[in-house]
Amino acid sequence: MSETSGNGSDILCVLSSNEWDRSAEGLVGAGRLLSDKTGGKLIAVTLGEWQDSALKQLGARCHQVRVGQTQVSVSGGIESMLDYLVKLAEEIQPASILFGNGTVEEEISPRLAFRLGGSSIGDAQALTISNNRIQVTRSVYGGKATAVMELQKSPAVVWIRSRAFPPAGPLPQSGSFETTVIQETSPESIELLQHHEDASEGVSLEEATMIVSGGRGLGGPEPFEDLKALAATIGAEMAASRAACDAGWVPHSWQVGQTGKKVTPELYLAVAMSGSSQHMMGITDARNIAAVNTDPDAPIFKHCRFGIVEDYRNVIGPLTEKLKSRKK
């Protein structure tokens, strides 16, 4: 018995990054959540080049894996990916198509929904099925409110905060594999000319367990060097508020928040930032938040486990020294 109206009861999870990381685990976990409710199959769809070991992890957790082989990068071949996904969805008639959180996923979801006559929404923090419809919980009004949105038309195409969902365990029986070569749509209407990665050591911000983040109160790019030294001592990654990125002090890939990264560290140390609701939207799943701010009434302290009311200039240098000596 299908709990969703319209299309069938199967759930597609589209994985466009080619790694079996926490994000992929959460995406498959979310898919299982829905397929358990609809009683349909959970079908993983991979784009890009996947290692056998990673595919095996998917196979253990999904009823079916559809491997999409492609010569072009996902972002350089959006039209090809869309055409492929449309065909796949028309064949499978899923109740829902889930994507993880990324700029390509955000781009594809509404376009796919449009082409399939479905509905779409993004940044899902929770998923349920009610009245035979998929419901999505998400932050709205810059994090000041939470909404439950109901998707009326099937398929429900949703990109989710994948790391916010618990991973799924293996199924009793391993899933089947089917490989399709993704045909290139010619000509692609847009042409990828150049790809640039900002310099970064360590892991991605999303996977980071410790993060040191700076805001407008730092007053310029130089103090970020001191924050970097602090971060290096404890093995933390660097992040920033939109204000600091917009000022050109640090790259945009450092931005955390509503329109930046959604991070889940054990510690998020917020230095000289006010804690605007839009920024907090990026760190709702941080285990511990701590702040250094001169203003005891700064909203950031309402979210902190601990904090220090002080000028960052008096804190960062000595703190770095102390942390260095403690590590010994």
């Binding site: 929404i121 409110a145 939470t146 109901e150 009326q152 302290f301 902190c304």
Partner: peptide
């Protein structure tokens, strides 16, 4: 006729007691 519509809207309760050092 909207394909997506809110069925609930609320202000999340989320304040942790900060320990000021």
């Amino acid at each position: 006729s909207d394909s997506v519509r809110p069925v609930k809207l609320f202000v999340p309760e989320k304040e942790s007691a900060c320990e000021f050092i």
